[in-house]
């Protein structure tokens, strides 16, 4: 025990600089942003006059921010559903001993090795209304007038321009979710499935009653990983579409960057980042709590 205690002290000592840096540069600055978001610092010079919730009020009454929040919700929803359903489907195909598995797996995983910036440039060209995929349709004799990410149509608050972004983002992360699911599927003991087969369960029943419940933790992790990517999305939209006409492809991250560094609205920018933090926290904190609980059990 004596040794363990001493080891512990060394561990704490060694970790201390890291912890200190973490507390100052992550949590300290989050607190600092929170404080700034309640001030009137909306020019280059710091102005620490407290204005209460004025920055937040202004944000929520601005058309741009309302659109941003709507876009974030729709984007996250579609991105999650496509990646998780599609990823599971792909991994299931590979799991069922499809031929050329390792080749296909590499192909599916490949987009993940690109950064969002590269993906963005690529898909911007593909969806560019005059030169991209539309010209392909035109060659086939269709009248292709859909504006993709420049379209300003909106169905019940969903800006259809987001479709282009959802496709690009899903393309990149589909393989990743597939890999996660595949690892989960491989972890299921063969005996379980074999005994179910002996009991006469069909493939559908096995999938529904055995496989899906067993990979639930994986689904959960995938949702967290993808969810926090899409809630904070910046680089893909910044490179691929920008904020778009009437903000059809705008996200809080873009708004925050522009209002802070182009418009010198530091307090407003801080307010946006705090709201983004809350959005992500809503997803992450329940996950953390459940993992911590799982650990202690």
């Amino acid at each position: 025990m004596y040794c363990a205690k001493k080891d512990r002290r060394i561990a704490v000592l060694i970790l201390l600089p890291m912890l200190l840096v973490l507390f100052i540069f992550v949590y300290g600055f989050i607190a600092w942003s929170l404080r700034i978001s309640f001030t009137d610092w909306n020019s280059i010079l710091p102005n620490m006059t407290s204005v209460g919730f004025e920055n937040y009020q202004r944000l929520f009454s601005s058309q741009r921010f309302q659109t941003d929040i709507r876009n974030t919700i729709f984007f996250t929803l579609f991105f999650l559903v496509i990646c998780i359903v599609g990823g599971f489907f792909l991994s299931y195909l590979l799991y069922s001993k499809l031929r050329g598995e390792s080749f296909l797996r590499t192909i599916y995983l490949f987009p993940l090795s690109l950064s969002f910036v590269v993906t963005g440039v690529l898909w911007r060209w593909i969806f560019s209304p005059e030169v991209g995929i539309n010209s392909l349709f035109r060659m086939m004799g269709f009248e292709a007038t859909f504006g993709w990410f420049t379209s300003t149509y909106s169905i019940g608050g969903f800006n259809v321009a987001l479709i282009a972004l959802i496709i690009a983002a899903s393309w990149q992360y589909l393989g990743y979710t597939m890999a996660m699911f595949l690892a989960g599927l491989r972890g299921i003991p063969d005996q379980l499935i074999e005994s179910a087969q002996i009991d006469g369960a069909g493939e559908l029943a096995i999938t529904w009653y055995i496989i899906l419940p067993l990979i639930k933790p994986i689904t959960f992790s995938a949702m967290i990983v993808l969810g926090h990517i899409s809630l904070k999305i910046f680089d893909l939209a910044y490179v691929m579409t920008g904020k778009g006409p009437a903000f059809v492809t705008d996200f809080p991250g873009l708004f925050m960057f522009e209002t802070t560094f182009r418009g010198n609205h530091y307090a407003e920018g801080a307010a946006i980042s705090i709201i983004m933090l809350i959005l992500v926290a809503v997803v992450i904190v329940p996950y953390l709590i459940s993992t911590l609980r799982g650990d202690s059990e």
């Binding site: 020019s43 058309q63 778009g244 903000f247 522009e258 182009r262 418009g263 010198n264």
Partner: peptide, 13 residues
């Protein structure tokens, strides 16, 4: 700059 940023936002709509 703050004014211009706002005008650009209005123009976008």
């Amino acid at each position: 700059e703050p004014w211009l940023t706002r005008i650009n936002d209005i123009m976008s709509v």
